[in-house]
């Protein structure tokens, strides 16, 4: 994968879900990965800390797939970089 941000997020999700990296795909849902709301918020907490961003509560509650997380976080990281 040539998307470093997506790779980082997938690695974090693999860590939290305890699923092998190859099982975590962009289209995977949290439900499929066995990530409930508590684990999901923990994941976002770790990503916020790691990336120096803040994900608003309303946005956090709407995330359902790996791709959702990547696309929600990308503009936040880009805004921070600029």
């Amino acid at each position: 994968m040539s998307d470093p941000l997506a790779s980082k997020i997938i690695a974090a999700i693999s860590e939290v879900s305890k699923k092998p990296l190859e099982d975590v795909k962009l289209e995977s849902t949290f439900a499929e990965l066995g990530i409930d709301s508590l684990n999901g918020f923990h994941l976002l907490c770790e990503l916020e800390e790691d990336l120096g961003i803040v994900i608003p509560d309303d946005d956090a509650r709407d995330l359902r797939t790996v791709s959702d997380v990547v696309e929600k976080i990308r503009p936040l990281v880009e805004a921070r970089a600029s």
């Binding site: 918020f41 907490c45 509560d57 309303d58 956090a60 509650r61």
Partner: peptide, 20 residues
């Protein structure tokens, strides 16, 4: 704050539009 269960405004039990 980490639990994301707190409403940003007021609690609105049983109402549409409640946020925590």
């Amino acid at each position: 704050d980490g639990l994301r269960a707190i409403a940003p405004d007021l609690p609105r039990p049983f109402s549409l539009g409640r946020k925590g």
